[in-house]
C-alpha cells in the first residue's frame, strides 16, 4: 500500500466539516463537537511522528476523534453518582401497567436504522464535497447547508448571481457524479 503523508496545513479545509458531522452525530451539541474537532487536530499534530502512513489521513484523524468522543463521555460521567443508571417509570405517576413493555425498544421501529443510514449518507456527501474545488464547496455549503440567500452570498464573496449559479451548477453536477459512485 502506498504510504500516506500528513499535510496538517490542509486539514481544516479538507476534514473539518467531515469530522464535525461525525462528532455532532455523537455528542449532539455543536459547540462540544467543534471543540472535539479542534482537539483532534491538535492531538494529530502532537502525535504526527507516530503516523506510520498505512491509513489515509482522514481515517487516522477519525480514529483520534473517536477517542476524543469517548474521553468526552468519560469526563461528563466521572462525577460520582452520574455513572449509575436510574430508571424512573414515568413522570406522571398515575399511569400504571406495562412497565417492561414500555421500556424495551420497539422492534418495529425503523428509526434506529434510519439514523445510522442518514449519518453514513451525511459522511458520504461530506466526502464528495471535500473533493470539490474550494470556491465551489464554499458556495455550495453556504447555499445548501447554511441556507443563505443568493444576495447575501454574492455580497459576502463579491460575485454576481450568474457566477453563483454557475458555481452551484458545477458543484451539483460533480456531487451527483460522486454520489452515484459512492452511494447508490
Amino acid at each position: 500500500m502506498a504510504a500516506h503523508e500528513l499535510h496538517p496545513e490542509t486539514w481544516v479545509d479538507q476534514y473539518a466539516d467531515y469530522l464535525f458531522n461525525y462528532a455532532v452525530a455523537r455528542v449532539s451539541d455543536a459547540e462540544i463537537a467543534k471543540d472535539l474537532v479542534q482537539e483532534t487536530f491538535f492531538a494529530g499534530l502532537n502525535s504526527a511522528k507516530n503516523y506510520k502512513g498505512d491509513a489515509a489521513e482522514r481515517t487516522w484523524l477519525i480514529a483520534i476523534l473517536k477517542r476524543k468522543v469517548i474521553d468526552h463521555y468519560r469526563k461528563i460521567n466521572s462525577k460520582k453518582g452520574k455513572a449509575e443508571v436510574r430508571i424512573n417509570y414515568s413522570a406522571n405517576t398515575d399511569s400504571e401497567g406495562d412497565w417492561l413493555e414500555e421500556q424495551v425498544a420497539d422492534p418495529f421501529s425503523k428509526d434506529g436504522d434510519n439514523t445510522i443510514e442518514n449519518e453514513e449518507l451525511g459522511l458520504a456527501i461530506q466526502e464528495c464535497i471535500s473533493k470539490l474545488p474550494k470556491k465551489q464547496s464554499l458556495v455550495f455549503n453556504m447555499k445548501t447547508i447554511q441556507g443563505m440567500s443568493t444576495e447575501d452570498i454574492c455580497n459576502e464573496l463579491g460575485i454576481n448571481p450568474s457566477n453563483l449559479w454557475v458555481m452551484i451548477h458545477r458543484a451539483r453536477t460533480a456531487l451527483m457524479g460522486c454520489l452515484n459512485q459512492n452511494w447508490f
Partner: peptide, 23 residues
C-alpha cells in the same frame, strides 16, 4: 439526499480560527 442527511458545517470564521490555532 442533502435534506435527509441533515448536514452540518462549520462556519468560515470558525474554520479560520481553527487554522490560526493550528498554525
Amino acid at each position: 439526499l442533502c435534506e435527509r442527511a441533515g448536514l452540518n458545517t462549520l462556519s468560515e470564521s470558525d474554520k479560520e480560527a481553527m487554522k490560526k490555532d493550528l498554525e
